[in-house]
Design a protein around this nucleic acid. Structure first.
Lengths: 339, 339
DNA sequence: CCTGGCACTCGACCGAGACGAGTGCCAGGG
DNA sequence: CCCTGGCACTCGTCTCGGTCGAGTGCCAGG
């Protein structure tokens, strides 16, 4: 149905429309891209493409614009990978180099992504559940309150306070510390429940109530409902295409303020090897139906820490953004694995 | 120069323009507000107000709009305090009630403010330097790395890692813990340098290098350059007035992404008793010259934890926003003091 | 000092007409 | 069979002139 030339026409339409933001006509197409055929032929191809739902035109005497389906086909089969220039790679590397803190890494990353792509950037903090426990510290705030401080291999630090049923002595706290600390080091957070399952049985009776409380908090708030965090940057970039979606800007901004929404966007796919692209209506989030999202997981090869990505109008430079997102993800993954 | 009626005219212009967003003419003014004078008289007053720079008109045959100077006069002398309804107060209280975590409190507060005022809301986390140390925990990550965890009375938790010149034994770490922990409890962070000044001298020689490192980190990153954090919400509200500042939206969004800028906005005044209003050009931040900012400190009566406020177009409901900001600040202050 | 009246300004709105980009279709040619 | 050039047609955009009306500034009178 769609021979090579028609695909070529679609590609030309997408690239031209992305760069110009104006419906593209047959003549301009035939001129700019050396398709080797006349505008009339291009028109015929366009008619077919429109029948198939890949492009549409706003009104009779206007050029064509790609539909979501058209973008999808473009992304899947037509866009060639656009390798980053050496300068860009170096810029990414140096920009991320100076970071010390995990917070700092994430903040830099998200700004960098927004800058490089010119879109809205989203970076999820390394997920707790996929992280490995480096240390669990138990601090006594006052006799019957403890503070748990969890440190992961990615440098993330989480704290929770625990109300105890009865006061503990310093010595008892030390025992707790040994009991938990000794077992958790090096364990993936997802595996913590298994590791700790038999803990209450082994504890001396006097410690059991306290042990139970601490265990409950560890399991409930750190393992079962780990707090996922995300960083956001580049919302100002939405105004560039504000001419495109003037009244649509509001729902987008609203959606972006919802942590849940952001996590949904990024969390859905976290494979560090393949980049995921959601286009327009494919998007599950109401209010982001006019935008596209490019996400990828980051982390070591065998598994992902978390996801990151960019969001922009469906009319975006998919090839470029995919490359940028992938490159940034790789560098961040290495950076976190190395530290 | 400006008699009572002229002031009344200015107030009428401001209130009408704020609610309608359209230049207001003499006839409409004389009609809606019962000024007891004819449109012609109003016109004369308007001419004077314009000479004095309180109002201007976009073009010859259009109504008047307030200038920044006009808003300033309005805020300082003309706006009556608009008390919140009981329902609003209750809503604020119940909305904030459920919070447990400090993070949760701040998140809820900022959303609440954005919701109530319909503007962009900014809430600064309780400032470190004004906080009191509740606990400083020292955790040994590996032989030559420590993690410092600082907990303040407002529930804020900060952590920093320290590279040691040489490995320490468990026992030595315990000594450090006692040395610091014993002295810092209950001390205001700003007073920490004085309290710790003589610490190195008292330490056993073997501990001095490590002690020095820890001390340096505590002083440098926690006291001298404490990391201030802010939360932001309601950027979507900017789109309501997007018709007002269409191309101006971008610089505003850009400014709002800069932590530094936000801190500058809020940090300038932190008095919990008086509300601070910055109008248009008064604003020191380039790019926010078309907006007004209403801020206030929050915290216990004697001093402020930090600041919070809202930002919106100069054309905003100052009286209402001032009331809302003050009310929210009071509740948050109580909430944090109580816990 | 306020008031009504009046001429004037100037942007908003409307409709007609010209323009032109772009389309769809068709007949002819390789 | 597919490509091509030609041609009529559509329809949005732009421009222009004219009308309308809100609002002003000024002035003379009470």
């Amino acid at each position: 149905m769609l021979d090579d030339r028609k695909l070529e026409v679609l590609r030309a339409i997408v690239t031209d429309f992305v760069s110009s933001n104006e419906p593209v006509g047959s003549k301009a197409l035939a001129d700019r891209h050396n398709l080797g055929v006349s505008p009339a032929t291009v028109r015929n191809d366009m008619a077919v493409l429109e029948d198939e739902g890949y492009i549409s035109h706003p009104h009779t005497s206007a050029g064509r614009i790609p539909t979501d389906k058209g973008y999808r086909l473009f992304v899947d089969r037509l866009s060639s990978v656009k390798p980053l220039s050496v300068a860009e790679r170096r810029a990414i590397q140096t920009f991320l180099q100076g970071a010390d803190d995990l917070d700092d890494v994430v903040r830099r990353t998200v700004r960098l992504l927004a800058q490089v792509t010119g879109q809205v950037a989203v970076v999820q903090y390394p997920s707790l559940s996929r992280s490995v426990v480096r240390h669990l510290e138990i601090v006594q705030l006052d006799p019957s309150r403890l503070l748990l401080v969890l440190i992961t291999d990615t440098g993330r630090v989480e704290q929770r306070s625990v109300e105890l049923p009865s006061p503990l002595t310093d010595d008892e706290v030390a025992q707790l510390r040994v009991a938990f600390g000794g077992r958790l080091g090096g364990v993936r957070l997802a595996d913590v429940p298994g590791v700790l399952a038999d803990l209450p049985e082994l504890a001396p009776p006097s410690l059991r109530p306290a042990m139970g409380c601490v265990l409950a908090v560890v399991l409930a708030t750190l393992v079962e409902q780990p707090e996922e965090r995300v960083a956001l940057a580049g919302t100002a970039n939405l105004t560039r295409s504000a001419l495109d979606f003037p009244t649509t800007l509001r729902p987008v901004l609203e959606s972006l303020e919802e942590q849940v929404v952001l996590l949904k966007l990024i969390g859905e796919v976290c494979d560090p090897t393949t980049v995921n692209v959601m286009i327009g209506e494919e998007n599950s989030v109401e209010g982001l139906r006019t935008t596209s999202v490019v996400t990828v997981g980051y982390g070591p090869q065998d598994g992902a820490y978390a996801g990151l990505g960019v969001l922009g109008p469906t009319r975006m430079d998919y090839a470029g953004n995919i490359s940028s997102v992938r490159a940034v993800a790789r560098y961040v993954g290495e950076l976190l694995a190395g530290s």
